[in-house]
Amino acid sequence: MANYTAADIKALRERTGAGMMDVKKALDEANGDADKAMELIRIKGLKGATKREGRSTAEGLVAAKVIDGTVGVMIELNCETDFVAKSAKFIELADKVLAAAVESGAADAETLLAYNVDGKPLSEVVVEEGAILGEKVVVRRVARIEGKSVDAYLHKTSKDLPAQVGVLFAVDGDSDAAKTAAHDIAVHTAAYAPTYLTRDEVPAETVENERRIADETARAEGKPEAALTKIVEGRLTGFFKEIVLLDQPFAKDAKKTVAKVLEEAGTAPSGFARFRVGA
């Protein structure tokens, strides 16, 4: 008879994030020794790491931290299933990855993964933890934003899962009004998903392609030639309102643009980053 209880299975699952059958097999092999079972799960997971290389990692979480109110760091850590994404082991790994991002000053995943954690590159730590979890785990991206005031906002798309959307927003002022605006716009950004901060950041070829589509659409609709320029520019303005943060109508007051909200707060944007898991 197996030398362990249902409580032992539950405890090891919480400790490793591994599936129930994997945990039971490991406990059977270890004759109920939890530490030995943990080691077996890790070894078997590492052996299966190569097989997991091609798997999709569309689940996971976003984590962020603001240092001294002036530097924001955010990471996206991916896995294969929402079961693992909400496990204590995966969340603990995300905390470790975020701490490494803060300490290293890394602004990209490649630099972060090369940073030493516990005497080895973070990339090795991630593979080892993924082995225990039994899934492919990936540090997908990192953002680092600086300003006089930086706000971080994390949003849960499901109450049962960790944050799936994260935003960093920085402004060049540190007044109470500036900090309030930074927070409100971070929340706005999570919901409205802009791609660019200003119109100048939109690639010229993207703008020209959108202008061409607007022109061809207006002609196909039979709009008069004399009105085409105005119609095309109007539709282009609508396009900018969708993808440019400063042009968007503010979520809390659609009569104002985000740019106007910042102006009224006596500040200006320094930068932003928005992550949505898998997007």
Rank of each mutant, 00 (worst) to 15 (best):
D151R: 14
L161I: 02
V127K: 15
G134L: 02
A37L: 03
G234A: 03
A18V: 02
G48N: 06
L27C: 01
I75P: 10
V261Q: 09
T237L: 05
E29P: 04
A181M: 08
I185H: 12
H188A: 05
A85P: 01
A101V: 05
K156D: 08
M38D: 15
L98N: 09
D184V: 02
E39S: 15
E210A: 02
E208L: 13
R13K: 15
A273C: 07
A220P: 04
V258M: 08
T50P: 07
V127D: 06
A11S: 12
G130S: 05
R13M: 00
G54Q: 03
I67P: 09
T16F: 02
A107T: 15
D35Q: 13
V165S: 10
E29C: 01
M20N: 09
Q164V: 03
D22I: 00
G32A: 05
P203N: 08
E128D: 15
Q248W: 09
Y115A: 12
L12G: 11
K25G: 03
R274T: 06
V126T: 09
S158W: 07
R144P: 05
I213E: 10
T257N: 07
T81Y: 01
L262T: 04
K86L: 01
A265N: 10
A34Y: 08
K36S: 08
V117L: 12
L228E: 01
I43P: 00
P162W: 03
D8T: 03
L113G: 02
A143M: 03
L236I: 10
V202P: 11
T195R: 13
A273V: 13
A178S: 11
D108S: 09
I9F: 06
D95F: 04
C79E: 05
G69V: 05
K89N: 08
T50H: 09
V244P: 12
V277M: 04
N31L: 01
K223N: 02
L98Q: 12
A204I: 14
L46S: 13
R141S: 07
R212T: 14
A182T: 12
A114R: 14
G134W: 00
R55E: 00
A152G: 06
V73L: 04
V117S: 10
S87N: 02
N209E: 14
F275Q: 10
R140D: 04
P249C: 02
A177E: 14
G32F: 02
L228W: 06
G134A: 00
I185N: 09
T50E: 15
E233S: 03
E263L: 06
V142I: 12
A220N: 13
F250K: 11
G32E: 00
G48S: 15
G147K: 14
A109V: 09
E233Q: 03
C79I: 00
I9H: 05
D95Y: 02
S149N: 14
K179V: 04
S270R: 15
E128K: 14
R276L: 05
K51E: 09
Y115K: 14
T157V: 14
A181P: 09
L262A: 09
V23T: 13
G69S: 08
T229E: 13
P162Q: 04
I67N: 11
A254F: 09
G45S: 01
S149I: 14
S149F: 14
A37W: 08
Y4R: 06
A265P: 13
A58C: 11
G222H: 06
Q248E: 01
A26W: 07
K159W: 04
L228I: 07
G17L: 06
G105I: 00
V258W: 10
L61P: 04
L197E: 14
